[in-house]
Design a protein around this nucleic acid. Structure first.
Lengths: 210, 210
DNA sequence: CCTTAAAAGTTAACGTCGTTCATTTATGGA
DNA sequence: TCCATAAATGAACGACGTTAACTTTTAAGG
């Protein structure tokens, strides 16, 4: 056999990304053989080269999909919390941390990709990364309207905020000495500490609009 | 030739670690062939297996050496800043960031090691990592004595502090869109933002001891 | 001194994996 | 029905981690 029947015309590109995400999560390492990906997809390894220039391209596609999913999670929280911007800062961070803790290997690929991929690991350089940052900045701006962080530079605060959450996640992510619950507790504790610090900036200035 | 003369008895273990650090930095990726390490050391690849169980063991040794160097840098700053604990928080963070920006690949190996290494990436689980954290906690405690962070839980603050600095470093580290100076500026800006936030907690309570 | 056993590398070889090449087969239009 | 093209296959290559078998230096003992 050399070319499959039209019946099984399942977009091999999409499936490869999905299966790679699955295998990577299962393995706990993004060093998965192309043969296994191909097997999961239902083809052979060289067939993948018709859809991706090489293995790095596949991993990059997987990384982009990761940013897609992260954005969707955060956008959903943003929608739900539309009326409470300060609450969004907290819940959005929780959701971010949960995403990372539930997809540790994918998260590592997104934010600490092997240099071979040739991508800057700056998340806001990709379109979806930028949108995630935009959600955060939006939450900060609206929180500022509610009296928090008076007079603060939003972009600075945003980058510090993201640094803190990402740092907490990153430090706790693959610590084998902690069970998942402990990782979550430790990460949430950092987020809470940050939120308390921001909250402290607002107590002196109750909602400016009221 | 099968066994070298006693004259050239250069501890191959140490040299392998040094050369690996050098090659990894030069390459910008810790995926360096053992053959190259061996060549740099002056032996053949299989000879390394007399000193390290496998390649992972070599990388782990390199990681430990990284924590050694980081600790020494931070300890030096701590010594120099002994009289100004709040200043140490800033200068120690600067030094930390400089270390990371000057040794990006080593830093990545320390804090985002490939799972294959079998080490938790929790830095304070290793002895030298714990000592770095101890320096930070010490700085926080003494800053508290000077009126900053009144009534705060030091361990919580310490973990948040480290999360922020590590997060900033990690996000800016390998962003190919930024030149080294820009990376430094962005990282320092996050540190400064954090320091200003901590400083704000102290302005209301001038040095308690005076 | 000579012999001998262990030590420490070296060369050769194997297995895995990413990647390429030539080949084969299904597809869609003339 | 026949042909050009697209798409995937199986075989093969090269790099690399790792292991096995061999070789030679070192150190000790008779």
């Amino acid at each position: 056999m050399a070319r499959p029947r039209k019946a099984q015309e399942l977009d091999i590109g999409r499936r490869a990304v999905e299966e790679t995400i699955r295998l990577v999560a299962q393995r706990g390492d993004f060093d998965v053989p192309l043969t296994e990906v191909a097997l999961a997809v239902g083809c052979t390894a060289p067939a993948l080269y018709g859809h991706f220039r090489n293995k790095c391209a596949l991993l990059i596609a997987m990384r982009d999909e990761g940013f897609n999913r992260l954005y969707e999670v955060k956008a959903a929280v943003s929608e739900r919390m539309r009326s409470d911007p300060f609450g969004y800062l907290r819940e959005g961070s929780y959701a971010y941390a949960r995403f990372a803790l539930h997809n540790p290997t994918l998260y590592r690929l997104m934010f600490s990709p092997p240099p071979k991929l040739g991508v800057g690991d700056d998340p806001w350089s990709s379109e979806n990364g930028r949108r995630v940052l935009a959600l955060l900045l939006n939450g900060l701006r609206e929180s500022q309207d509610h009296g928090y962080l008076p007079g603060a530079d939003l972009r600075r605060q945003g980058l510090m905020f993201w640094s803190t959450v990402h740092g907490a996640v990153s430090l706790n992510l693959e610590n084998q000495a902690m069970d998942p619950a402990a990782k979550w507790d430790a990460t949430r504790d950092v987020i809470d500490t940050l939120m308390e610090m921001i909250a402290a900036t607002g107590r002196r200035n109750p909602p400016a609009g009221s």
